[in-house]
Design a protein around this nucleic acid. Structure first.
Lengths: 175, 175
DNA sequence: GAAGTCATGTAAACGGTTACATGATTTT
DNA sequence: AAAATCATGTAACCGTTTACATGACTTC
């Protein structure tokens, strides 16, 4: 069976310990979301499929309390995760509306400064969010490394915007 | 009428002069594709809609030669483009499979070095492609600025991978 | 005359998001 | 008692890609 991208996210999350669909979504929402999102509409159906395929197993129901289904990784599931981790990354996609607007800015050059400012602000906001996550002290190891990637890359992007805005301003003044 | 993202790409491209759907696709494929893709399945239907809405106009048919429909921006279309350029960017999305694999690498730590090498290689390949585009001398103004963003950002990403790989290796050796 | 490429278009499938529905439990 | 949050799930929709179909013109 071919595994969907979401399936890999789930296998990865469960490799950190047993979790419910709700747990997976919550963790995705403040970690992988920034480079790989997933919604309930994908997570719950995918949990079913993975359980049917035997890659994950539903744990015994909870004693009292809320109804929840907690899954854990099966040995086969762990093996599949390992296989996926050993393979080459397939997807790198970027959709950057700010860059698109800047690309076409010649049609209305006075808008470029605003676009650069917005984009800069956006990346600075991400850096702030990431620094807060870092401050919780929770991420460690590879997850922490990826968090640092996020911080540094957005710092870089914000700095680029600042530089481009400065260049633009001096070019405008010169003309 | 609310304009789709693809519509804005088309308006932007036509602001550089009249073009056919085929032309638009060809230009997208070696420019915006890296931060905003578009396929025939979107472009042709969108051209129709934009023409119906009066934002673009089909030019008089060609004298002999191949059948092709060339569109140009109408004054209303130009105005709509300008409005869009004045507004705040809405979308920034990243899907980075390599980062995802690295994030979960603790489940199979020996795979991390390979993932980092692949990701590095990928970004270096992009830099090469962009340098070739730069060498054609075609992009200018804002489009050239965006090209430089692409070059520098991928250089940064490749360098990050190299650094992370070095850190990983020394950490592994220490243990 | 075969291969390539210019050019337009559509149907089906896919991955994903949004919005909604439901209801139990916990907190205020 | 009300509000928040935990928790699961589905249906409808949307944007997009892929694959295919068609045919004319150009180059070898």
């Amino acid at each position: 069976m071919e595994l969907s991208p979401t399936a890999h996210v789930i296998l990865g999350m469960l490799s950190w310990g047993p979790k419910s669909g709700y747990d997976v979504k919550a963790i995705v929402d403040n970690s992988t979301r920034f480079f790989w999102a997933a919604s309930y509409g994908q997570i719950y159906p995918e949990l079913r499929k993975l359980a049917e395929a035997g890659l994950i197993e539903a744990e015994a129901g909870p004693e009292g309390g809320r109804r929840r289904t907690v899954y854990r990784l099966s040995p086969t599931g762990h093996e599949r995760l390992r296989e996926w981790l050993s393979a080459e990354p397939e997807t790198y996609e970027l959709r950057d509306d700010g860059l698109l607007r800047l690309f076409f800015a010649a049609a209305a050059p006075d808008t470029a400064a605003g676009t650069l400012a917005s984009k800069r602000h956006y990346h600075e906001g991400l850096v702030e969010q990431f620094r807060e996550i870092e401050a919780t002290g929770k991420p460690e190891g590879f997850a922490l490394a990826v968090l640092h990637y996020g911080i540094e890359m957005n710092e870089w992007a914000a700095a680029w915007c600042a530089r481009a805005a400065a260049d633009l301003e001096s070019a405008t003044r010169a003309a």
